[in-house]
Design a protein around this nucleic acid. Structure first.
Length: 270
DNA sequence: CCCGGAACCTGAAGGC
DNA sequence: TGCCTTCAGGTTCCGG
């Protein structure tokens, strides 16, 4: 499931191959992937657009087009992008044909992924919260974010309106690294714990990017390689393994409707 | 505001 | 082997 480090990796891998290229056309193989505008309008607007660069915001991937339009993608659960020449992998939902005979394949087995073509990003990205690796994400900013909710701390980390880009895996990793139980309510956290959480969020995301993302399920990089971030996960998807710190068997519970991995010894409920 | 649950989907995994 | 059920979790929407 692509989260911030996976999307950042896709962006970094893809950008040098597509910047300056012109989009000849786009083939929609599963039309519901396109959220807006209509198919006809989309195909008309995108034709012959030059890609001037790429950006990421939260878990969204953005292709900047010469006309000012933005092609925005969200991988949701199982989406990935691949580069190739006339060899779309199974579950390819959209093909972007570039002017050098290269093709970008939007591959998405579960069909949850979304593509949008808009003039103004704000209608798509406007509600997103702070970028956790930006200068704006200070300890004070996190303190204010946490004070806005009285829900379990994991729910807050997953709320894209508050902090953009953290998903299930990196939320668990950040909570483990800061020794905070995932169901702890935000109003019970001490200043020290908030400081530790702030650091942990940035650490786990940076490490994820450094390792080119985590390939736990469907995630592949555009060259078909997997990332290696999951190999360094301490708790995410590690049920019944011993805690790397204290050897207590890790547990899996359900928080915010998500499978949540944690160490019952290192991350006490109170 | 907050929470729980359903919907969107398919492939993998587990039970029998 | 094969059918069946359950599970995986990002986002949106809906009801309480």
């Amino acid at each position: 499931m692509p989260e911030l480090p996976e999307v950042e990796t896709i962006k970094n891998d893809l950008e040098p191959h597509v910047t300056g290229r012109k989009i000849k056309s786009v083939t929609l193989l599963w039309e519901r992937t396109l959220q807006q505008p209509s198919k006809e309008e989309f195909e008309r607007i995108i034709k012959n657009q030059k890609i001037t660069g790429m950006d990421r915001r939260g878990k969204y991937l953005i292709f900047n087009l010469e006309s000012g339009y933005k092609l925005i993608m969200h991988m949701r659960m199982s989406g990935s992008l691949m580069l190739g020449h006339d060899n779309p992998p199974p579950h390819t939902r959209t093909v972007i044909h570039l002017d050098n005979d290269t093709e970008i394949y939007f591959n998405d087995p579960r069909k949850f992924g979304k593509i949008q073509l808009v003039k103004d990003c704000q209608c798509v990205l406007g509600k997103l919260g702070v970028e956790p690796l930006s200068d704006e994400f200070t300890i004070l900013a996190l303190t204010e974010i946490l004070s806005k909710r009285k829900s379990p701390v994991k729910s807050v980390l997953l709320d894209q309106c508050l902090i953009a880009g953290i998903g299930n895996m990196y939320a668990d990793e950040a909570l483990f690294a800061s020794k905070i139980h995932p169901t702890r309510h935000t109003d019970s956290l001490t200043g020290e714990e908030i400081e530790a959480l702030h650091r942990a969020i940035q650490d786990v995301l940076r490490l994820g990017i450094k390792n080119k993302g985590a390939s736990v399920t469907n995630y592949f990089r555009p060259d078909g390689e997997t990332g290696t971030a999951h190999k360094q996960f301490k708790v995410a998807h590690c049920k019944d393994k011993p805690c790397p710190v204290c050897r207590t068997p890790l547990e899996r519970i359900r928080v915010h409707q998500r499978g949540t991995y944690f160490c019952p010894n290192c991350q006490k409920e109170k």
